[in-house]
């Protein structure tokens, strides 16, 4: 029996259809739109549960989920001790630095982000001294309103940046969703996990 943690929201639909293509009888998206958080399909040998994308690596690290689908952005930010098994290639985007086109370095540069660890380590590697400001959403607002000159955030089409008059200044990393596994499950349920991996690899 495999327990799989799925992120709620945008990634979930793509991930579910990938599992379906791989021949796993996961429920249709419609059935999951209800408020139900746990779906058990014993005849196929798995249980799915839905959780916040940011929390998926935590469930997997502690082993309450054997597997999970998590964005590389979340994995980079949290650096949890889990196996990263497969790049599902879904919801591709970039972890990027952005700011106004006429952006000028301030005497006291500030960077706003939902990903403080990623931002901190990136600017450290660049040898730049910046103050990281942790926000929880609408990060694009920060340069517009004057909280920070630059932001670090995920960018997919760049639409939100453009709408706020911002441009991408640099790419930190390419981001896609990954299949992750608990260290213990990877050993104890290795065969079932390997089977799923092989099936998913066929359809990616």
């Amino acid at each position: 029996m495999l327990t799989i943690a799925m992120p709620k929201g945008r990634i979930m639909n793509e991930a579910l259809s990938l599992f379906q293509q791989a021949g796993w009888p996961v429920p249709l998206q419609m059935e999951l739109d209800s408020r139900k958080l746990v779906v058990s399909i014993p005849e196929a040998g798995f249980t799915l549960f839905l959780a916040k994308p940011m929390d998926i690596p935590t469930y997997v690290e502690y082993g309450v989920a054997d597997l999970g689908v998590a964005g590389k952005d979340v994995l980079m930010e949290q650096a949890r001790d889990v196996y990263e098994l497969l790049d599902l290639g879904i919801s591709p985007c970039r972890m990027a630095v952005a700011g106004k086109p006429d952006w000028q370095p301030d005497l006291h540069p500030r960077v706003a982000t939902k990903y403080p660890r990623i931002a901190e380590s990136y600017f450290k590697e660049q040898g730049e001294q910046v103050e990281i400001i942790n926000l929880h959403g609408s990060v694009e607002l920060a340069p517009v309103i004057g909280l920070a000159e630059r932001i670090v955030d995920i960018v997919s089409t760049g639409q939100t940046l453009r709408e706020n008059g911002l441009v991408e200044l640099g790419c930190i990393a390419e981001v896609t969703s990954r299949l992750i596994a608990n260290k213990g499950s990877y050993r104890l349920k290795g065969e079932a996990i390997q089977e799923l991996l092989n099936q998913l690899e066929q359809v990616i």
């Binding site: 309450v64 608990n182 260290k183 213990g184 050993r187 104890l188």
Partner: peptide, 11 residues
Amino acid sequence: FEGYADGQGFP
């Protein structure tokens, strides 16, 4: 080597 047991997420 690492040793694991059923139901345990950590070695």
